[in-house]
Design a protein around this nucleic acid. Structure first.
Lengths: 338, 338
DNA sequence: ATGAAAGCGCTAACAC
DNA sequence: GTGTTAGCGCTTTCAT
């Protein structure tokens, strides 16, 4: 098989222990010894065996990430943030594209008790919090992105759903809209609920009565949004604007409008959430809410790696990060665009 | 620490070897013994330690994938294909987003001699083939997607660049275009070259003289395409159409056209390559060439896993897969759309 | 500052 | 069909 640490040791005329010290740049090796070892490593083209290292050190230097669909740029960006932070800290990242299947996500959770990964980051609305708590209580390290989690061992990073939803809907109200629909994601997800809360708060601020008829849910996918807006249209309500809980579903709204000949924003103002890359290229460009996806990924990865190395979080475990409403053509006042 | 295989063995009243046999469902275990062991595993909530397994078995059940940017749907789709095949075969996938940095890709190559992964899939135009050959010759398992590689140990999957480029450009010619520009990717990549070849072949078929002035290169990014088309415009040539070597660069062309007030397809017909998700949402929708991204990922992953388990490829190592030109609005004849 | 040696948890060769 | 045991390649006390 491959060369081993003893081979290097022999060539360098030292013990395996010393080679190991050099490899893990322990400071207690004399400069001269170190360079001898380094020379031997180079000469032999030696690479330390990862599995042996993992077994002995009880750490795999690997993080796992579970996402519903890597081809949605919201998730891709988050993964980039995670991967880059991991890379900087010499960690690897195993990806789990669950394809929106909760069973697959459950299976991937076993990477933790397996010790295939040192920690797992969840970016999925599918898994229930209880499940996470169970793992965390068993001593496994988990992180969550996109929702906050009420467990002091689980770092999470999210934006203020209520706040930005309030702002987004207030913007629509300012544009003169009074009949504003809301399309949520999974009915029981925190995101769906909190964004609805912000929506209601904005209506209330302007004394616009809340109408349950104007509420529907997709499942955070284009198809889900498409079906939801059709259901809303079918009720023949005088809707002039819609706040959609993510950009993917807004794509479905665009599609439905195209089919029905409804012009955006003239006949329907639309605003989404996530600021996915695709939103800039749409016509009209989609108003949305920027989510610092890359940063959220990086923050959670960093917290996990930190706690892997220093054992505990410094202080808090919930990280709230600023988001920002981005106004583009899809929500401009009819008079100004039509 | 965690429970070990001996603990399970004790509880079940068998030897560690038997537990191991059950775990790896070796057929030679009596049914009754097997269920006893399974019961013990369940009762103890036992999970086998991955690192120990990897070390002992000399395989990590892990694949690596190197891509330049996971947030480009071309790569995301390929990764999905890889991940799904891997999952079905109980392999994990480590992702390497190189951020278009060749140094980072080089670093990730060490996952192979490290034995962190059993095989590595490259979906990047950045690494030179010689480097790959070097690793393959040392006995490492590599796969390549998007270009063919002249090494019998390296499975690769690609589409016929010359052929589909010929078809794409022929389509433009049929629409009446005679002054057709070409924007390639990295100047020295096979894709850039072969697509140019198809372009030239199409011109030749119609007796249209080849004009080097009409050729420029981006680097397969939106920004690169943006700059390239600007350089072409600046030459004040009577260009009426452009064949762009990938969709990302076509995005840059769209942007430049918007800035210069050039209407697509009336004043400039555009056709890209990859059929990235985003192309359908553009206005006008971008004509492009479908690449079976998911399938390419799955095929290469499968070949690698197969050869990991049966040691050799059945027969061939280069897999050519069908692609198809998709005509949308961006390349329709001016008279019919303008 | 360096070496000797134990052992991480599993699998597989061999014995029965 | 099942058990015994060596050893995968590394890190890390504990000596010196």
């Amino acid at each position: 098989m491959d060369k081993k640490i003893v081979d290097v040791a022999k060539l360098a005329g030292v013990s395996p222990a010393t080679v190991s010290r050099v490899l893990n740049d322990s400071s207690l090796v004399k400069e001269r010894t170190k360079s001898k070892v380094l020379a031997a490593i180079k000469e032999m083209d030696y690479y330390p065996n990862a599995a042996a290292k993992h077994l002995r050190s009880q750490r795999t230097m690997t993080l796992g990430v579970i996402v519903p669909d890597i081809n949605v740029s919201y998730f891709a960006e988050i993964i980039k943030g995670i991967e880059n932070m991991a890379y900087a800290r010499k960690y690897k990242v195993i990806i789990c594209d669950s394809d929106n299947k909760v069973e697959k996500e459950h299976e991937y959770l076993s990477l933790l008790p397996n010790r295939t990964v040192d920690a797992l980051i969840l970016v999925t609305p599918l898994l229930a919090n209880d499940v996470l708590y169970e793992y965390a209580d068993k001593g496994h390290l988990l992180g969550v992105i996109g929702k906050s989690v009420d467990h002091e061992k689980i770092p999470s990073c999210k934006t203020d759903n209520v706040k930005f939803s309030y702002e987004a809907v207030s913007h629509l109200i300012e544009q003169g809209h009074r009949q504003i629909a809301y399309i949520g994601g999974y009915p029981d997800s925190v995101e769906t609920y909190e964004r609805l809360e912000g929506y209601m708060k904005a209506l209330k601020s302007s004394q616009i009565p809340f109408q349950p008829m104007l509420i529907d849910n997709g499942d955070f996918t284009e198809e889900g949004g498409y079906e939801a807006i059709h259901r809303l249209f079918d009720k023949s309500l005088p809707i002039t604007a819609v706040y959609v809980a993510n950009d993917e579903m807004a794509l479905g709204v665009y599609k439905a409008c195209r089919e029905r000949g409804i012009r955006i924003p003239d006949e329907l103002a639309v605003i989404g959430v996530d600021n996915n890359r695709i939103t800039r290229y749409l016509l009209p460009p989609l108003s949305t809410v920027e989510q610092p996806k890359y940063a959220m990924g990086a923050i959670v990865a960093e917290k996990l790696i930190d706690s892997l190395n220093e054992n505990e979080f410094a202080d808090k475990h919930e990280f709230l990060i600023e988001s920002q409403v981005i106004i583009r053509e899809s929500s401009k006042r009819p008079e100004t665009t039509g």
